[in-house]
Design a protein around this nucleic acid. Structure first.
Lengths: 188, 188, 188, 188
DNA sequence: AATGAATGAGGTTTCATTCAT
DNA sequence: TATGAATGAAACCTCATTCAT
């Protein structure tokens, strides 16, 4: 029993160590040897913990999703919607580096699903988790709006690859835009 | 007398025929053999028109940018800003399929630049062309806002890979949000 | 009739123009496109005058052999053997650049014959032409000695690829060595 | 525990097994698949031990040079110069097959350096090692003479490709010629 | 559990040669 | 005659995966 927990925990550690590498190069451009080297293990060991590269990637995406849920939970819900939007924006800016990488990996995962003709189950499932988390956070009853917001965060993140100094500016713009939109269309 | 062919024009035709394939699979997942097959030529012919896969991809990105400039130009400038925003949204929705693919390829190109350590010259140059085109269209003096808008369109587009029925809804949301933002913050 | 002569002559011109290219790169490293470019014609034209790359190369080797026979003939035969050896050495030094290239191509041709499993007929035939020419020039009755001399010239030539200033020195050494040998072993 | 293998030693074994193939066909005419087949391994394994075909070839040349130094060392130095020359000739004749192949590869390497525009460092370095070894063996103070001798051996070797029965005759001729030369020009 | 040597299918690219014009 | 676009076999090389140790 305790052994199993250790294995599971070690797997999580390995996944965490992969994060930067996948964010930087993308699934298709990372070799298993590079992964093994980054993790400080042999390729044999890598294949001992993960059946193949695809599963490794999918588990990484799941791990990221779980972490993102935690990030979103940090927002204090005892505030007006505008305040919560600003708080979310603030958290994104504070975790800028992580958020950008997470978005890059997510987009990479979307392409991976279409390119490798992998079943979208995981993709759809994670997608709806984000949708729900944002919906709850901002008391939205239109799921499209919730998804929309997270999509915009991705959009902004991805385009930071080269000049990452504008991330904060753009998240701020997004924040203001959302506030203006909600003020005009939906009563808080 | 040799076969007379407008090489430059034929190159453009070939690039156009690649568009769907790259949008669907992504640069790293498309093989040159697949490209040749899609184009209905041999790999030898492919390499007769493009020195290598990278240049082929870069020229495709350039072609897309030129086409996008044409799409943006379609908006009638004799309207209020809100009207122009709506017109732009309308055009995006009308060209939904193309816009999504274009965005997917663009994001792929961003990753390609970072993964292959290709010089960013082309990336930055194209980036600023979009910025300028949007700035002119909406009379913006803050370039960050212009870039921001196009980034959001990319963000929305990318996430359509699997359920593309929400594109129109999300572009509509973006339109309304931009209008609300400009009404509140910037006089038309 | 005159047409045929022209074609033949044009072929010789083309071959002459290939000489430097083959000497510099070697048969296997020269592409037909490079040859065509060097000749200022299209690949189609190249294949109009020569059935393929192999025949082109073989004809070049033949042409070189004919030219070498002319070089050797320049030696005035009304001299002692030692004088004739020195005269030959002098001619080699005067034509240093040509001699080196000719030797490089010849060695390349030897390798070509073994690598491509081409029949050695041409090789043997040319070999014996050199043997005879040297035998006649130096009044040798041992054909091995004649061949030996030409082989040494090749050996010296090939090793000039990088520091070609020692060619004259080494031909001079060869000359002295031959003279010493003949003085000791064979009466002039 | 992993399979224990002395990588460096295995590399040397692999190189030794390549020797004949390269001698017979030449660098440009040997394919990596042929090499792998000759070595009895897969192409993947080949690339596990050598980063690419060029480096493989260069390491082969280095290995050959080291072996040649051993061959030259076999000559007993407690003899007159004439005797040492004869002893060297004898060793060359005894190792005829190896010497010819070694020479063919060396010449191939010279062409390889010029054709592939590889830096000549290795070539010059090896060149000087031969020069020194011969100089020491025959107590020569003129390095040109030392280089000259080895060049002649190469020249003779290369021309044996097709009728290798004359090698001994020609090495014998070279030996006599050198003795005659030294008797006349340089006191033993 | 851990290693890394070994595999070989499949990737990108080259190039001798052909052929419609 | 002359052209050069087109071909596709085959070159070099990579990399996910396996397996003996």
């Amino acid at each position: 029993m305790p052994k199993i927990i250790d294995v599971q925990q070690y797997r999580q550690e390995l996944l965490s160590k992969c994060f930067d590498l996948f964010a930087e190069k993308g699934y298709a451009n990372v070799t298993t040897r590079q992964i093994a080297k980054e993790l400080g293990v042999s390729t044999g060991t890598l294949y001992h913990y993960f059946p193949n590269k695809q599963v490794l990637f999918e588990q990484l995406v799941e791990q990221i999703c779980r972490q993102d849920m935690e990030v979103i939970k940090q927002v204090d819900k005892n505030q007006t919607r505008s305040q919560r939007i600003e708080a979310l924006g603030q958290i994104l800016i504070e975790n800028q580096e992580y958020i950008i990488k997470q978005a890059v990996i997510w987009i990479d995962f979307c392409q991976y699903c279409s390119a490798y003709k992998v079943s979208d189950n995981l993709l759809l499932q994670i997608d709806s988790r984000y949708e729900q988390a944002i919906s709850e956070l901002l008391d939205l009853n239109n799921p499209q709006v919730a998804k929309f917001i997270w999509i915009l965060v991705d959009g902004i993140s991805i385009n930071q690859i080269d000049n990452s100094d504008s991330f904060a500016v753009q998240i701020e713009l997004l924040t203001q835009m959302l506030i203006a939109y909600f003020e005009k269309h939906i009563s808080a």
